[in-house]
Amino acid sequence: MQTLTLTNLVADYGEQRVLGPLDLAIEPGQKIALVGKSGAGKSTLLNLMHQRWRHTGAALMPQELGLVPSLSVFHNVFMGGLARRATWYNLVSLMRPFRRDIDSILPLLEQLDIAEKCWTAAGELSGGQRQRVAAARAIHQQSDLLLADEPASALDGPMAVKVMAALTEAHPTAVLALHDVELALRFADRVVGIADGQIALDQPSERVKTQDLLALY
């Protein structure tokens, strides 16, 4: 993966400027936490990143998760790997999954403590369970770059840590929009603070203290 850059990026809703202009460069191997209060522009920035870089195969974990409620947990996770398979293969798997795919997805579900729901429809799950399924789907995509919007917001402390660890270990480079300051400092090596659509802070996480980030909220 090459350095990814955004130059003079702006986003407008109608006549209202909601983001930018801003410049940002993401180096391969960086784990970046986007922090800031709701409405600051974090989600908009992530969506624009995905539009710009989706051709690279970037994995997106949106805040609304994007699961198909009528499909099983297995098939929702399997969808993360659709681009690696022929269309006929994906259609057959929808009716009768191949053992090789079950064997690759089950350990991932076990890692995220959701394996017992493998054949349950996603629409029957709790919010935290759905979030873990979306995380598994992102990991199954096997991308070098993860763009995730509040990937652990519906999870309790230990499970949030487990999911964050799995996501950051699976993706060499990641940009993570987070409200949880402790998770941001624990799992990111660079923190970018967004306020009123602008970059208000951009520092290595080792130079940032909790109170520095709380000032953005």
Rank of each mutant, 00 (worst) to 15 (best):
M1A: 12
Q2K: 09
Q2W: 04
T3W: 10
T5G: 14
L6N: 07
L9V: 03
A11S: 02
A11I: 00
D12H: 15
E15D: 14
R17N: 11
R17S: 12
R17H: 09
V18D: 02
L19F: 12
G20H: 01
I26G: 05
E27G: 05
P28E: 11
I32A: 10
L34N: 00
L34K: 02
V35A: 07
K37C: 01
K42I: 06
K42G: 02
L46S: 08
L48P: 08
M49G: 11
M49P: 05
H50K: 15
G57L: 09
A58I: 15
A59R: 03
A59H: 05
M61H: 00
V68A: 12
L71H: 09
F74I: 02
H75F: 12
F78I: 07
M79Q: 05
M79D: 00
M79H: 06
G80H: 08
G81R: 12
A83V: 15
R85W: 15
A86Y: 10
V92N: 13
V92C: 12
V92P: 01
S93W: 04
M95V: 13
P97V: 11
P97M: 15
R99D: 11
R100F: 09
L108M: 13
L109C: 08
L109S: 06
Q111L: 09
D113G: 06
D113T: 12
I114M: 03
K117Q: 07
A122F: 03
G123R: 08
L125W: 01
L125K: 02
G128R: 06
R130S: 01
Q131C: 04
Q131H: 07
R137P: 03
I139P: 04
I139S: 01
H140L: 06
H140D: 00
Q141L: 04
S143D: 02
L146K: 08
L147S: 06
L147Y: 10
A148K: 07
D149R: 11
E150N: 02
P151A: 00
A152N: 04
A152Y: 05
S153Q: 10
A154W: 01
A154V: 02
L155E: 04
G157Q: 14
P158S: 13
A160Y: 05
V161P: 00
V161T: 07
K162C: 06
M164S: 05
T168N: 08
T168A: 00
E169L: 14
A170C: 06
L176R: 07
L178D: 01
H179N: 08
R186K: 10
A188N: 05
A188R: 03
D189C: 14
D189K: 13
D189R: 14
R190V: 05
V191I: 15
D196S: 14
L201H: 07
L201Y: 05
P204N: 11
S205W: 11
R207K: 15
K209R: 14
T210Q: 12
D212F: 12
D212S: 11
L214V: 00
L214G: 02
A215Q: 13
A215D: 07
L216I: 11
L216R: 13
